[in-house]
């Protein structure tokens, strides 16, 4: 079984002479949440549309579940649930009627699929309220219900929390988390908000002006984000004793390969170094790790940063 659920190879989209997406190769691994981060207009939606075959590809290839999308749409679409841009439904029909329409076209996985999908997102089944009088939060929920209607393996969600109030955002976020953790779904999500992606994603791809600047796991990036003093010594025990007796701190951990993390960042590095050397703890590395994710994004996007 191929490990990558979505794999794009040098995906490019040109409108005339302007290139909107340029040689983007993303790899969405099975069972993970992949966050596509970029400012508005960075090419996130276009990339997602190309992955879904909604938008023609200028050059490059999209592979879903290890198969080329082209000519396999009918086979691959049932395995994908998506929300692209705003969730689109018929305004004069109720949420239930809307889902029934899409269930009719796409087929279903169980008898009461519509009812269960609505229940999952907390919308009433068979009520009288037309979609046009739904609040933004309800519309977004219905979009999610439509996406999960057939319990798909892959979800492609374009800014799913856009326009929601903080409570709604938290709910959607928790829901997406549970989809990944409890149901093992693979999720591709886009956002222009850094914290959103940081809270949700396992892997992250950063799009800037149509270019994929970085693709990495969140865990790797988070290491850059923690605030602590990292030291590497020859004797952990001596260093521990120095920390407690001389620098009066218990707020440290001993890691593997003789390194230690001191979370008490108020400690003066020079003093720490002197104290460690004086007992012969053999310091080989001493550094403050306080790279902030936001600063990091600023750095790689060339200073402009992300909202």
């Amino acid at each position: 079984m191929n490990d990558c659920v979505i794999e794009t190879q040098m995906l490019t989209k040109r409108y005339g002479s302007t290139t909107v997406v340029n040689n983007v190769s993303i790899h969405v691994k099975r069972g993970r949440i992949y966050g596509l981060l970029g400012r508005n207009g960075a090419g996130k939606t276009t990339t997602m549309k190309m992955i879904l075959g909604l938008s023609a590809i200028s050059s490059g290839e999209v592979r879903l579940f290890g198969e080329s999308l082209k000519k396999n749409e009918r086979k691959l679409y049932p395995r994908i649930g998506s929300i692209i841009e705003t969730p689109g439904f018929y305004p004069h029909l109720t949420g239930t009627e809307n889902l029934q329409i899409f269930a009719r076209i796409r087929g279903t996985i169980k008898q009461n699929a519509v009812q269960e999908a609505l229940k999952t997102v907390g919308l009433p089944y068979d009520d009288k309220k037309p979609f046009s009088s739904y609040s933004l939060g309800m519309k977004q929920r219905l979009g999610i219900a439509n996406a999960i209607l057939n319990d798909p393996e892959l979800l492609i969600l374009d800014e799913p929390t856009n326009g929601l109030d903080p409570i709604g955002i938290a709910e959607v976020r928790a829901f997406i988390r549970s989809l990944s953790e409890e149901y093992g779904k693979t999720i591709l999500i886009s956002s222009h908000i850094l914290t959103e992606i940081a809270l949700l994603a396992d892997d992250i791809g950063i799009l800037h002006h149509g270019n994929l600047l970085e693709e990495n796991t969140m865990a790797d990036l988070e290491k850059k984000n923690q605030k602590y003093i990292h030291i590497q010594v020859t004797s952990q025990s001596l260093a521990a004793q120095v920390l407690e007796r001389v620098l009066h701190t218990n707020n440290y951990t001993a890691e593997a390969d003789n390194s230690m993390r001191i979370y008490d960042t108020g400690i003066d590095l020079v003093e720490l170094n002197k104290a460690l050397v004086s007992v012969g703890a053999g310091v080989s590395t001493i550094q403050i790790c306080s790279d902030n994710l936001e600063d990091y994004f600023k750095k790689i996007t060339g200073g402009v940063g992300i909202e």
Binding site: L52, P78, S82, E85, T86, G88, F89, F102
Partner: peptide, 18 residues
């Protein structure tokens, strides 16, 4: 035209129907 204005076209096109 309504499929376009209501954005339902995207939901329709991602269904396994040509």
């Amino acid at each position: 035209q309504r499929e376009y204005t209501d954005h339902t076209i995207i939901n329709m096109l991602t269904a396994p129907v040509t």
